[in-house]
Amino acid sequence: MKTDTAGQFRQIEKESILGQQPPFASCHASSLAILPNGDFFCAWFAGSREGADDVAIWGARRSGGRWQKPQILQQNGLPHWNPVLFVQKSGSVWLFFKIGREISSWQTWVSISQDGCRTWSPARELVSGDAGGRGPVRNKLIVLSSGRWLAPASLENGQWRSFADRSDDEGKTWRKSGEVFIPLAEAGTKSEAYREIPVSEQSFTGRGAIQPTLWESEPGRVHMLLRTSEGFIARSDSQDSGETWCEGYATSLPNNNSGIDLARTADGRLFLVYNPVGENWGPRFPLRLALSKDNGQTWEDVFTLEEAEGEYSYPSVNCSGNSLFVTYTNCRKDISFWHFELEEQGKEAGV
């Protein structure tokens, strides 16, 4: 258990999901789901290295306060990427993931569990004929006040750009929104630090904005923060439930061209996990938790999850009541899990 110095949390706990001897050489890109019975389920991709043909989707359950042995969920001889878990109101759990050797033309597949992630349906394409990635690219989808499912998506063929995939029939069909671009500086940069990050070489030539994370502030008003190659986290806003979006614009938050994620509490607070490094392909440390109380207009770092040198990246952030849960890649050897108990609004630091 760690001590909170910002007065935002009543309790903080950290756990290792994989322990000392994981059954693979490398793991990355976790997604966390809170199951109806109170258990947790976490999924990630793992194998010999990112992009290798042996990379599969793995998962593990936390039940009775302990993480169980990880199991392979999906594997077919092609590289698997970026699992995304989603718990439907009915209790069904959806597992979205990417398949393919080329990121620019990978496909999104989906499998569904009706028994709390113990068994899974045969995987199928989310959108028939997809090439480039439909549905959620890395972060969780959200359900709007209207009931619409909104999945944060992006494309990496040509200039990187993002969009929202919309479903008004609980995942049966999907419609792509307008695309979100950001203005690019005349010349791109690539930090020498990238050599320490075991990322697929395909990624290093891309520029733009990808892997959005979404929230709805009022009925129909939806927002996204985006990972970019330009040294900052970008933002875009929609006034029509995710059908159209404004051009992406810079926020005050730095970004190292690595994944981010946030969750919105019932009282409107936004909790974001990110690397506060404003350098394209810069180091993936430290890893911090930031808070906004004004719908993302301003941010304050309130907790440091990791500060030592290493790769701490690709967070997954979820909230339930007054609890906040975070998972992320820990040096490609483990997935870390954090549990924060939040102070109620107005009670932080004795306010």
Rank of each mutant, 00 (worst) to 15 (best):
M1W: 11
F9I: 04
F9E: 04
R10Y: 09
I12L: 06
S16V: 00
P23S: 07
F24E: 01
A33Y: 03
N37F: 01
F41G: 00
A43E: 00
W44Y: 08
W44E: 07
F45K: 05
E50T: 05
G51F: 03
D54A: 03
I57V: 13
A60L: 03
R62A: 12
R62G: 09
R66Y: 10
W67V: 10
W67S: 06
W67C: 12
Q68M: 14
P70D: 07
I72Q: 08
I72Y: 02
Q74A: 10
Q75V: 11
H80A: 15
W81G: 08
P83A: 04
Q88A: 08
G100T: 06
V110W: 01
I112R: 02
S113I: 05
R118N: 15
W120P: 10
S121R: 11
G129Y: 07
G129H: 12
D130Q: 02
P136L: 07
V137S: 00
R138L: 02
R138K: 13
R138H: 02
N139L: 00
S145W: 08
R148M: 09
W149N: 02
L150A: 15
A153H: 04
G158E: 00
Q159C: 01
R161E: 04
S162E: 05
A164I: 15
A164C: 14
D165E: 12
D165F: 07
R166S: 06
S167E: 05
K176P: 08
V180T: 03
F181D: 11
I182K: 07
A185Q: 10
E186G: 06
G188I: 06
G188M: 01
S191Y: 07
A193G: 09
E201N: 09
E201T: 15
R207Y: 02
G208Q: 01
L214W: 05
E218A: 14
P219T: 08
R221S: 14
R221G: 00
R221M: 14
V222P: 07
R227K: 03
A234R: 07
D237L: 06
Q239L: 15
Q239W: 15
D240S: 06
G242P: 01
Y249C: 11
G259W: 09
A263Y: 12
R269P: 02
L270D: 11
L270T: 15
F271N: 05
N275R: 01
G278A: 05
L291N: 05
K293Y: 03
K293D: 13
D294Q: 13
Q297N: 13
W299Y: 13
W299A: 07
W299L: 14
T304R: 09
P315R: 04
C319K: 10
S320K: 15
S320Q: 15
T327Q: 09
T327F: 01
T327Y: 02
R332M: 14
F340E: 01
K347S: 15
E348L: 09
